[in-house]
Write a protein that binds this DNA or RNA. Structure first.
Lengths: 220, 220
DNA sequence: TCGGACAGGATTGTTGACAAAAAAGTTGAC
DNA sequence: GTCAACTTTTTTGTCAACAATCCTGTCCGA
């Protein structure tokens, strides 16, 4: 599904993007029923488009459905959230290796720029900004790696795990630690050291996992 | 999408399963146009069901489409085939570790049973049977691991890579090597040795990768 | 009081028609 | 023969209506 600029989108494409975003942003909550007629009215799109979008979102793991009983936002439990992190770890280590192999000087500059911005945000106490840059840094590594298959899988996992991961930013000291971990990854990539890049990525995601375990039971 | 027994399926579910199978089996070829009306007539299903199935298959990576221009079976090139193997390697190593941690005596017996059957097939020169048992063994490891997220991802990757992997069975000596590699995995799982299970799985999939490189350019 | 039967309403699944867009074919000028 | 403009055909995208199924509430009998 090639995704054109806004003006040229089909209703089906708009429906998919808007519902996906609503789920990722928490406007549509885990367990919430997704009634076609209601969504159709809310988003001003036809029912056929909504149905198609729901099918797509279901394949992506964000929605569950049953014949004649409808669809709902899939709830990701604690156990699955950890599974998602483990799968991400496996794939992001692969990406880190590839990025270390392929990074150009410009790529490294870009990564270091993001690190500097992260430092700035941390100094301002802007945890949300940090979280957003965290994502930007990971996405940049994926871009540098140029491993499309891993990129696709990581994006789907990120979408599924986003609600759980969000809360790790509230763990005291996690932001500082995260910055140090990211710096280690970037320096390994800059040095074209594949094994160190993998170890650094693994350590980082183990830190995320630990933070997640620390916040278990406390969904915002 | 809970998948009920045949009698209770919606047309949408039937369409998805039948089209998916047709793609995996090579009845619908890479690059082939998937025209809704034609598929509707061929499979005796409504156009709406076909549309929904195509959307699902597209999310799964088996189909590509463009607005107003239709859908086609996605062609997986050599480079992507290797990417798929790399991503599988990352995830199947994770699975091997989990299987090594969790395997019961009954699980190990089951794995050894599959190995014995593979030996039988190899002795008979039945490469197709070997290939099928190869898949059974991997699936059994995934079952033992009980890591649903990895299972889902591996299944999608398998579906995408199946056409390329199929030709590795024709590489001289690959079947014998594969059996030895599988045996090493099973024994590591039996010994609850996570690190060895991971190493054995990595070595196995590296063997698959090497076989694939050996056959490059020669799609059947 | 409790459980089963039934009706009505809500929602999903399907169908067929029409709108919109792209692909293919035709025609005429150079 | 080539190319551009135009027309026709094919196919996808959308819509509204109807069919099918499930859920909920009510009623009645044991």
């Amino acid at each position: 599904m090639r995704m054109p600029a806004v003006e040229k989108r089909t209703e089906g494409q708009s429906a998919y993007l808007r519902l996906r975003e609503a789920i990722l942003k928490g406007e549509l909550l885990p367990g919430q029923r997704l009634v076609e007629k209601e969504l159709s009215e809310r988003y001003g799109l036809g029912r056929a488009a909504i149905r198609t979008a729901l099918a797509r979102l279901e394949q992506e793991g964000l929605v569950d459905s049953e014949p004649y009983r409808g669809a709902w936002v899939r709830a990701i439990g604690e156990e699955e959230a950890l599974e998602i992190l483990e799968a991400r770890m496996a794939l992001e280590c692969l990406v880190a290796r590839h990025a270390a192999r392929k990074a150009t000087a410009a790529d490294v500059e870009r990564l270091r720029g993001i690190l500097r911005e992260m430092e700035r945000r941390l100094a301002e106490g802007d945890l949300l900004g940090m979280s957003e840059l965290n994502r930007t840094l990971h996405q940049t590594l994926v871009d540098i790696a140029g491993h499309r298959t891993a990129a696709r899988l990581i994006e789907a996992l990120r979408a599924q795990g986003v609600r759980h991961q969000f809360r790790t930013i509230l763990v005291p000291g996690r932001a500082q630690q995260s910055l140090a971990e990211h710096r280690r990854i970037v320096e390994a990539v800059a040095a074209h050291d594949e094994a160190e890049a993998e170890r650094a990525m693994r350590a980082h995601l183990e830190g995320v996992t630990a933070a997640l375990r620390q916040t278990q039971g406390g969904l915002p």
